[in-house]
Write a protein that binds this DNA or RNA. Sequence first.
DNA 1: CTAACTAAACTGACCAGTCAGTTCAAATAG
DNA 2: CTATTTGAACTGACTGGTCAGTTTAGTTAG
Lengths: 233, 233
Amino acid sequence: MTAEPAGAVKTLRPARTTATRQKLFDASMELIGERGAAGVTVDEIAAAAGVSKGTVYYNFGSKSELIAQLLRHGVDILKARLQEAPGQKAPIQVGSGQESAAQRAATAASADPLLEMEAMIGQALDFMSEYPSFARLWVSENWRTPSEWQGTFAVLRGELLEVIGQAVERVAQAYPVDSTVSRGSLETAIFGACFVVGLDRQTYHPERTRDQSVAAIMAIMRGYVLQRPGPRG
Amino acid sequence: MTAEPAGAVKTLRPARTTATRQKLFDASMELIGERGAAGVTVDEIAAAAGVSKGTVYYNFGSKSELIAQLLRHGVDILKARLQEAPGQKAPIQVGSGQESAAQRAATAASADPLLEMEAMIGQALDFMSEYPSFARLWVSENWRTPSEWQGTFAVLRGELLEVIGQAVERVAQAYPVDSTVSRGSLETAIFGACFVVGLDRQTYHPERTRDQSVAAIMAIMRGYVLQRPGPRG
DNA sequence: CTAACTAAACTGACCAGTCAGTTCAAATAG
DNA sequence: CTATTTGAACTGACTGGTCAGTTTAGTTAG
């Protein structure tokens, strides 16, 4: 019988378990990204992770749950990357006037929300380069209608779009923008363009540079902003 | 014994076969779009098409070949739609000065390549609405690395991007554009945004209108064009 | 001592592809 | 006009193999 219901506590977990789960995440990400969730067997994943099949079930309970947690894992990484982009550095609510040099640098870099946006898109593309399999898994399963991970996707998608939405909002505060454009659709377009441009670069056009890709996606923002006299205020 | 090797002649094919193949395309498109190529069985497809399993193999030879031809079929439809957009109406080389009223209307509408671009994006979104399963199949399988349909995708992707590329070219001829932006990346961004915005509307935001979506994607073009004094020439 | 993990065998469902046989519309023969 | 033949189109039971998930008895590491 499996002790501890699969996928229980995440924190305070023994080091061995954490390492095992990480190995399984790495192996799954790779294999599933290449051949799709349905195209990979649990035996293969276990073998690739250098672990027995029983361990997969001990840790995750099912193939489906493994993949759900894999999606969550990837989104956590991507969100962290996006928030690394200057100006996204979470609500710093420490006593006023005591920012560190690093904090001041971040603030300075984020003075222009368009530059911040550019940094975010760059981070997104870097993520796609680093975890191409995650991007493939995402686009493969995201829009399936009665998907096993429908709920998972709805939540994760919302989290990512919120980060983008905040950055767009900051642009809209600093610049005159075309208010006839639906904010939601715009965010989706940016989000989608990041994935597709990133994946396409990976698969079909490795010669395209990161900066070319960023510039192409940034065209969306330049088209959203009405004039270019720099941020106001 | 099966006469005629599967998937041979396409033209002059007896009506019965054409009807059968169409039924199989319709059924496959629906099922595969929902649950993915690997998630659907040939038995299910046959049943949904109201045909026996043997007929699938008689007509296509393999599940894989059925899907390859399904992709080709969908791209043919999408390409036709994109070329319906004003100004794309293929090289009309009939005797000069004898255009029909319809041709003149199309020419008039295409006077502005940006409007033409807008029409094309609208057509793309309409296609996504009408064949959502095709779009899902496309994004699900397009970027798999050693895919069964790698070659198929490379060809079809090229055909679609060429149509977009021509429209972008016409914009670049008529307007001053940001020449530092890589044309290929830009086209990919537009292409990707169409798919993702279309699918997202379908799956998560049915309340978003077609025109909102078009406007969001058109932001890319507005950002690519440097000024807005109307087309030159 | 116990949670985490191993190794290997096993079950039961599922599924791609096969093939011997059936149908029927059109061609040909009488 | 009727009988016969032909073969493309189609059928569906069957085969061989695969795979998620289970079980069990034992091992390792913290």
